[in-house]
Amino acid sequence: MKKIYFVGLFMFMLFETMAQTNFNLGAGYYGQTVTYPGVVFNGELEKVFSEKVSMPIRADLGFYVQPRFASSLFLDVSVGSRKYFKSGIFIEESIGVGVLQTFVHSDGVFEVDQEGNVSEGSRANPVYFMPSISLGIGYDLEKNTGKRNLIWLRPKISWMVPDKTTSSYNVALQLGFTHTLSSRGNTK
């Protein structure tokens, strides 16, 4: 048992001392069901374990508009893996959790109580819990350098819990750019 503990501690220390950490900022187009326009901004902490493998932890803040229905604001955090190739191409996957707030477009939202009285209601829907998964492909414009300038395409699937669960989901397409602001730690 002690051997397992020491091997685990050694591996943790090895990865912790060998890994480089990049702080990245990015922005892009966020298309809910591809055609409903929006924007997404992201901050990313990327733990680089080798020239080919990293683990990005990303926070996304986004907004999109469904012209006939609502405007939506979301915030989510995801963690995943990214694999770089010598050509500059990279692929990635991530899983995330977040929140989504929608605001109904209308001249007014009205509610009817149990006695039949009509009153004006809130345009804000309840806040939804938003688990998500995404895949991505991109290109590193500064391949084989310490700083990275990435262009990416990320299809994303998310759910609006409790309304949209396993068989009912939202699809979005993200297209954007990410820049490495700073790097810390050992470089490969």
Rank of each mutant, 00 (worst) to 15 (best):
M1S: 13
K2S: 11
K3C: 04
I4S: 12
M11K: 04
M11T: 13
M11Q: 05
L14G: 14
L14S: 14
L14T: 08
T17G: 05
M18W: 06
M18A: 12
M18R: 12
A19C: 03
A19N: 00
Q20C: 07
Q20N: 06
T21I: 15
N22R: 06
N22S: 08
F23S: 04
L25A: 09
G28C: 10
G31D: 11
Q32V: 03
Q32T: 04
Q32M: 09
Q32W: 07
V34N: 02
V34S: 03
V34H: 09
T35D: 14
T35I: 07
T35L: 09
Y36L: 13
G38N: 08
F41V: 15
N42R: 11
L45Y: 14
E46I: 10
F49Q: 01
F49L: 13
S54F: 04
S54M: 03
S54N: 04
M55D: 03
P56R: 00
R58Q: 12
R58K: 07
D60W: 02
Y64Q: 09
Q66W: 07
F69V: 14
S71Y: 06
S72Y: 11
L75D: 06
D76G: 02
V77Y: 00
S78A: 15
V79L: 06
G80N: 02
G80P: 10
S81I: 11
I89D: 01
F90C: 04
E92R: 12
E93H: 11
S94Q: 07
I95T: 08
G96C: 02
V97Q: 05
Q101M: 03
S106I: 00
G108Y: 01
F110Q: 14
E111A: 05
V112H: 03
D113E: 06
D113N: 13
Q114K: 12
G116T: 08
G116Q: 06
V118H: 06
V118Q: 05
S119E: 13
N125L: 15
P126D: 13
V127A: 07
Y128A: 07
M130C: 04
S132D: 13
I137S: 05
I137M: 15
G138H: 00
G138V: 02
Y139W: 08
D140T: 02
L141N: 04
N144T: 06
N144L: 09
T145W: 01
G146M: 10
G146C: 09
L150P: 00
L150M: 11
I151K: 06
L153T: 05
R154H: 03
R154T: 05
S158M: 02
M160G: 10
M160R: 13
M160W: 15
P162C: 02
T165E: 10
T166P: 14
Y169R: 02
Y169G: 00
N170T: 05
N170K: 03
N170M: 05
V171R: 08
A172M: 07
L173K: 13
L175T: 13
G176R: 09
G176M: 05
T180Q: 05
S182D: 11
S183V: 04
S183Q: 07
R184E: 07
G185N: 02
G185T: 13
N186K: 10
